[in-house]
Write a protein that binds this DNA or RNA. Sequence first.
DNA 1: GAACCCATCATTTTT
DNA 2: TGATGGGTTC
Length: 755
Amino acid sequence: MGGLNPRQEEACSYTEGPLLILAGAGSGKTRVITHRIAYLINEKSVNPYNILAITFTNKAAGAMRERVDDIVGFGAESIWVSTFHSMCVKILRRFHDRIGGQNNFTIYDTDDQKAAIKEVLRLLSFDEKQYPVRAMISAISKAKEEFLSPSDYERKVAGNYREENIAKIYREYQKRLRSNNALDFDDLIFRTIDLFMMQPEVLEMYQERFRYIMVDEYQDTNHAQFILVKQLASKYRNLCVVGDDDQSIYKFRGANIYNILNFEAEYPDAKVVRLEQNYRSTSTILDAANGVIANNEGRKDKSLWTENPVGEKVRFTRYEDDRKEAMGVTEKIFGLLTEGHRLSDIAVLYRTNAQSRMLEEQLVRENIPYSLVGGTNFYARREIRDMVGYLKCISNPADDISLSRIMNVPRRGIGDTTVNKLREYAVLKGISLYDAVLDAASVPGVSRAVGKLQAFAELMEGFRREAGEGNLSLLYRDILERTGYKAELEAEKTDESASRLENLQELLNKITDYEMREEHPTLTSLLEEISLVADSDVEEETSDRITLMTLHSAKGLEFPFVFMVGMEERLFPSGMAMDSDDPDAVEEERRLCYVGITRAMKRLYLSAAMRRMVNGSINYSEVSRFIKEIPENLIRKDGVKERGNGFGDSFGGFSRGEPYYDEWQGSTFRKKAPYETKRNQYQSFGMKKAGMPKPGMPEPAKIDYQVGDTVKHIKFGRGVVKEMERGGNDYEVTVIFDSVGEKRMFASLAKLRKI
DNA sequence: GAACCCATCATTTTT
DNA sequence: TGATGGGTTC
């Protein structure tokens, strides 16, 4: 086995029976997984068809798929590489009817859940103040993660008045989802477990199929996922789980660290392989990480080591306030550029998304291109949700939630009163809301709106017929046109409406892309992809930029140069964790810190501010305990005063370096910086507000082509520009591509290159 | 039915 | 600071 160390090799070749791979940060985990799959196929003659690899995110699944394809070659495509959720959808699309469901269910996202909960609260006359929607969603989600049905939940909380009411909400919510033929994300797992329990022969079929199972990031699994894996693996017991308890940072969303800690208790015959050699970081960085994580109790015994060079000391700087901290970071970034490093080698990590603003402002001011990971999901935008609402309605007429969303969007004179009358009628007759609309003429009290309802019903029926014909992009365009949605936005002529239109165009691109990719495109599977595939795996970023993201999002990534900012008590570790009665809360923060440190390959910059704006008011904080947990000899502290709140004589304590920036020290650097700034590089993903360009964000796309030119597109390849039309501050370009024919797109999004 | 004002409340994120 | 939601007013 080429290029594997003995431990890695052991992990690859131990194929029969339960195996726990404790893979420390940077220990070559992905390599091991892919090599293991290759070993199974090539050495053990396992049929690729019998292999299942489960990951958490689509991104991870995609990456694994790619690597497996590279290394395995023939037969690789019949390996199931999948997320928990998409695996369950596949199974339920086939067998959900065996347990009293329908196979063409809709998947509800958080927004749909919210709407459903609101209806339930109204129905049960519960006060939203006492039973906040978000808290209810998370309580229900938690119950499902623990595989508790409404009855189980009721039993568990008996005697607690409030909890009993939550149980009622849970029960009613499930009832509603069922009548809407919808499942939420947690249901996907839950119902699959149900299916396997109630239909042993279905389970057996999958057990036979998945003789070799691998689960990545096992420390992130919740109890329901644990049960599911156990069911699938119980026949052949060839279960290989890979994870690192020290990198468990998702307790808040149900991850159960005991799944990995107790793996050996669950499978007494399990073999355990520890991957402890780190190939990523300098020994200084690694020892700093080890120093921090050593403060946690209840870990699997493990010590990471490396043969990498010692490298430089970790640097810590304490600044006066958050703005100075941001300035310090940009200045150091210029320093790195002067040393000849690339922007894409640099990441700035922070604990909370709110911290990005100050950094962004500073980066824009200094013309440093960045891309922001996270932020608002594309599919969470209003216009996108509206369109997806239409599609969901068309695909599943029983989906009252989606119907309520779009019935009066754009406004067509179907007001709340009318909708309420329709609801009453639907409940009375035991039919869906949509059926009530179809039967508008017999609904009492809506007489004035009957005409409008009938027109709406006709519109929707037309869409439904069209959906049957299978041209999804055409259907989508028709919805935009015939509902008047597009016209309304076009009439608005504001920056915001222009950006919404761009987003709608982008959705069209996604649909077209889906149609081209898929052999048998259907509305159901398109919606599935939209629900299941988050937006985070957006277009591969080609240009050179630094990356800004939360520590959570950084997991699994690596960068030569890493900044961790905001190393302050109550920010990191978070105040919430510190105040929690659960002692593990701070430990989880510490694991997060460990994750952050171990992202760095060459150099790690840590910083804190004495004073920072938090939730609109100024906070004074002390240096994070995690800084103190890094062994003294590994860290260089610039101008640090350990205690103090930023008042009075605290300025005296700085020893060296320049932790305090004169307003404009940074700008002298800018002139010296030996690199060119390209305009139009600033546009970041996940802009928070649809449409509002960030202050200082440059104009979109520079366009170096015109009608008649030959251009190149990332996905569609070569094409000729047929037409260019000004739309807002952008161009709408029509291109005839060799591969896919004519396409209309926005210049700023299409990234066309003249060739 | 829509525009506006005030009060409230703030981690982390994927599916 | 800022986003969001409810209530009020036109």
